[in-house]
Amino acid sequence: MSTDKNIVSVLPGSPLGAGGLRQEFTITVYTENQVGLLNRIAIIFSRRKLNIESLNTSPSEIESISRFTIVLTETEDVIRKVARQLEKQVEVLKVYYNTNEEIIWQEMALYKVSTDMIAEKVKVERLLRECGANAVVIRKDYTVFEVTGHREETQKLVDVLEPYGLIEFVRSARIAIIKDSCGFHEKLKEFEETQPGEEIVENEYLNRQEEVFSM
């Protein structure tokens, strides 16, 4: 796990344990599709006063299994403990956490601006193109653009449009694909076995012994 890039700050020691480098982590949670599970997952964070930066729930590659994508900035030590607590929930099948280098991720943003304004200002049109914005709806009174990308990319268009009057802006939660993952099909087969294989009961935190911060 590389940790050199997204270092935000050094946490002097949180109630959850060791100090260490805080950075952005993306947690991927494979779950059963069950009413109430969102609450069970959310309170694991709120109980520890952890601020979720983004949360997305979606179907996964397997019907009946949902995939939560949760982003927060914390130390790895905290993230690992939270991941264990998540995985402990009866309806959670598997939890992964990754740094940004280990995932492909995207967020989508929508921008509503006045159509007159774009028509008037040629410069704006050029800027929109530069930002890779697509028009989703064009009406007489307003136009809605869409940008998909990393935070900086979606933010850039906000900065560009603000001086011209940005009527409405919204950004979606992050969705992410884990580079190293082979998906969940094979894993699920093992979960469905009454006798789990080694693969399923892997002792990840033990395998990662050397990377574990001490308290």
């Binding site: 995985e87 002792n203 574990v212």
Partner: peptide, 17 residues
């Protein structure tokens, strides 16, 4: 028996889950 207990408060040299 609960893996979330290992390393939660005290870091283990060896955890036996």
């Amino acid at each position: 028996i609960d893996p979330s207990e290992i390393d939660k408060n005290v870091k283990a040299t060896v955890g036996v889950w």
